[in-house]
Lab assay of single mutants.
Amino acid sequence: MQRVNMIMAESPGLITICLLGYLLSAECTVFLDHENANKILNRPKRYNSGKLEEFVQGNLERECMEEKCSFEEAREVFENTERTTEFWKQYVDGDQCESNPCLNGGSCKDDINSYECWCPFGFEGKNCELDVTCNIKNGRCEQFCKNSADNKVVCSCTEGYRLAENQKSCEPAVPFPCGRVSVSQTSKLTRAETVFPDVDYVNSTEAETILDNITQSTQSFNDFTRVVGGEDAKPGQFPWQVVLNGKVDAFCGGSIVNEKWIVTAAHCVETGVKITVVAGEHNIEETEHTEQKRNVIRIIPHHNYNAAINKYNHDIALLELDEPLVLNSYVTPICIADKEYTNIFLKFGSGYVSGWGRVFHKGRSALVLQYLRVPLVDRATCLRSTKFTIYNNMFCAGFHEGGRDSCQGDSGGPHVTEVEGTSFLTGIISWGEECAMKGKYGIYTKVSRYVNWIKEKTKLT
């Protein structure tokens, strides 16, 4: 034993070699072989497995989906700052455009905790909710729209109204504003409101030439003092309507412009014939205590009207009353817009006519005020429907199939267009061939041609 100890002390290297040989010859039971080890760690190889990531292109799944990435790591994937920024906006807080917040056709661009709407022409605001041009839906104005110097929408209202708090709607500024039905039992019968379409306001006024200088022999019209197929109006439903009495009662109609003036057809009036105007009328054979009678003290036909040349060209006249009318729910003026808007309103496509005229061709006159909704007829169809001249200051309205029309005794009465609950004068009943005849239409004086003249002559002093 002493000898062994001496050998170990003198030859430590020998001992180490012996131990190493023993270990190498022993069977290893701690580690699995290569094949079995792979069965336990069965993990798919990654895209760049075996390579240094710093030297390969980034992978979106590896960089940002398996674990949260930084902007720089995302930049490695896209290799483009702009594309990385677009991805980053949604990656950080989701897609803010998912709810489609942009209105009126706006395009949404996502941002971090926010979004941006790219608005089409005519709109602005956070969600493109603000109209900035009158060309689109009248700028959301209830009545009139004008573009300011910086191309912003400025709404306005006709006389007797003021802008509401929203700067879009119009509200009454006087007790009985024009064009409004205020009798409670008839307010439910107000005709369907007309909503502004998209309009090209630059070209809204037709490029028409008034044929002022045409000389033409007097034409022989049949029954051209021209509501057939209409309905009984309720008291106060058309408070701007008046009836004219002269040699015979209810020979023509008219509309209240203001307390002192009536507008009617020029062919209705004769110099030297006494005319009485009755406002607030409903049943011409009954006294309903809503009527107001006034005498006409002055007749002003349009300066281009000449019955000797043509009885229905420039067929418009103004009547001055001896005493002002007292405005109330049964006696209310009709609204008159400017030339541009009167023309736009007419193009809405349908209007209402009213009167006490004959209820059928050569038949009896109506006792109760009649009204009828009539569609506008395109000019080409209008011209083809008659052998008589249709001037540019006239328009056609009615039904091709016949059966409904204005008729004798309705002449001078109103053709009105309702705009968001307020009625505007767009025409004056003038003439036609018979009444409600198939293929024939009622012919009306186009008020847009005469609004400046009306307003100039009827100013209240």
Rank of each mutant, 00 (worst) to 15 (best):
Q2L: 15
A9Q: 13
L20I: 08
Y22A: 12
S25L: 14
C28R: 01
L32C: 05
H34N: 14
E35S: 12
A37S: 13
K39C: 04
L41I: 12
L41E: 08
R43E: 11
R43I: 10
N48E: 15
E66Y: 04
R75I: 06
E79S: 14
T81A: 10
E82R: 13
T84Y: 04
T85G: 12
T85F: 06
W88A: 10
Q90N: 15
D95P: 12
E98M: 09
S99H: 15
N100P: 04
L103C: 10
D111P: 02
Y115I: 03
E116Q: 11
C117E: 02
C117V: 01
F121D: 08
F123H: 12
E124G: 15
L130C: 07
N138V: 06
C141N: 00
E142P: 03
A149D: 09
S156G: 07
S156V: 06
S156Y: 10
T158D: 03
T158E: 05
L163F: 01
E165F: 08
E165N: 09
S169C: 04
C170V: 00
A173V: 12
F176S: 05
S182R: 09
V183S: 10
Q185F: 14
T186C: 04
S187G: 10
E193K: 09
T194W: 11
F196A: 09
D200E: 10
D200Q: 07
Y201M: 14
Y201T: 12
A207P: 11
S220Y: 07
S220T: 10
V227R: 12
V228S: 10
G229Y: 12
P239R: 00
Q241P: 00
Q241F: 14
V242K: 00
V248W: 08
D249A: 02
F251T: 06
C252P: 00
N258M: 00
N258Y: 01
K260M: 06
K260I: 04
C268T: 01
I275V: 10
E281V: 11
N283F: 09
T290Q: 07
T290R: 10
K293G: 03
K293D: 03
V296N: 01
I299R: 04
N304Y: 12
A307H: 09
A308F: 10
L318Y: 00
L318F: 02
E320P: 00
L321A: 00
V326D: 14
V326F: 09
V326E: 13
N328H: 02
S329A: 11
S329V: 06
C335I: 00
E340D: 11
Y341F: 15
N343A: 08
S350W: 13
G351K: 02
V353N: 02
W356Q: 04
K362A: 14
K362W: 04
G363P: 13
S365Y: 13
S365Q: 15
L367E: 14
L372E: 11
L376K: 06
C382W: 02
S385D: 12
K387M: 11
K387R: 12
N393H: 14
A397P: 01
F399N: 13
G402A: 13
G402F: 14
G403R: 05
G403H: 14
G403L: 09
S406D: 15
Q408N: 11
H415K: 01
T417E: 01
T417F: 02
V419N: 06
E420P: 01
G421T: 06
G427V: 00
E434R: 05
A436W: 07
G439F: 04
K440N: 15
K446W: 02
S448P: 02
Y450C: 02
Y450M: 01
V451A: 15
W453D: 01
I454T: 00
K455F: 05
E456S: 10
E456L: 09
T458E: 00
